[in-house]
Structure formats: structure tokens, C-alpha cells
């Protein structure tokens, strides 16, 4: 079966979506990712959507869900590289995806994930002291 590959980079998982996904493929990705987060004990997920030319409410919802689910699994998700036309269309569609963290590109997304993790860790240390 067709699948979107998930790369493991240290503590993080990286997904680059390059195909025009049909709905089931999007659902499979959601399943695979949540399973991977647990299996590899990942702290962060980076989803690169810079080659996506369109996001409709279904894919938008999948991205929101992945963010929420990863949170439950104690990992942060950052969606990176959304194209301007896609962003404008999503807003017009009525989706502002409030709970989703975003960054301009993979590099900035990685920085954001590290910051999130650092602040999480420092909170833990504070609690311990």
C-alpha cells in the first residue's frame, strides 16, 4: 500500500508530504505518525508541506489532529513551509488551525521544536528543585 515515509532524526520525526494525498492516505499518515511517536519515543514532529499546492478541510483537519494527538503523546508538532496561496485559501475556507504550531521552513521549525523542548525541560527541572 502507498505510504508517506516518516524519517527519524534523533528525537524528532520528519515527514515531507510531496504527493496530492487522497483521504485514506492522509488517514494512514495520521495512524503511522502516532504509532511512530510512541515507538521511537519522539519528542517532536516536523511536517514539511512546502510542496503541497492545496489544503482542503480534510487535510487541514488531519494536520490539526496530528498536532493534538502528538500533544497527548507528549510530543510537539510543527507544520512548516505552507505556501501563501494555500494559507490564504485555508483562511478563506474558515480554517485557522489555532492549535497548530507553524514555521517558515524546516530549519526554523527545528529551532522552534528545540526551544519548545528546552522550555519543557527547564520546567521539569524547576519542579524538581
Amino acid at each position: 500500500m502507498e505510504r508517506i515515509p516518516i524519517l527519524r532524526m534523533g528525537d524528532f520525526l520528519l515527514v515531507t508530504i510531496q504527493v496530492d494525498m487522497h483521504d485514506r492516505l492522509a488517514m494512514t499518515l495520521q495512524d503511522d505518525l502516532t504509532r511512530q511517536i510512541v515507538a521511537s519515543n519522539s519528542r517532536g514532529v516536523l511536517i514539511d508541506i512546502s510542496s503541497l499546492e492545496m489544503i482542503d478541510s480534510f487535510i487541514g483537519r488531519m494536520l490539526s489532529n496530528i498536532s493534538l494527538m502528538s500533544n497527548v503523546l507528549a510530543a510537539q508538532t510543527v507544520v512548516v513551509g505552507m505556501q501563501p496561496a494555500v494559507a490564504i485559501t485555508l483562511v478563506e475556507l474558515g480554517m485557522s488551525m489555532p492549535g497548530v504550531r507553524t514555521a517558515l521552513n524546516v530549519e526554523k521549525g527545528m529551532m522552534l521544536l528545540r526551544e519548545c523542548l528546552d522550555s519543557d525541560d527547564s520546567e521539569v527541572e524547576d519542579d524538581a528543585s
Binding site: E53, F58, V86, T89
Partner: peptide, 17 residues
Amino acid sequence: KLIDQTKFVTAVSELAR
């Protein structure tokens, strides 16, 4: 224009679903 393409295609996707 790219923005109009994207809006139309997205509407098509919603309605087709």
C-alpha cells in the same frame, strides 16, 4: 493566478468529497 487556481481547486475538492 496562483491564488485563484488554489481557491478553485480547494472548492472543487470540498464539493467532490
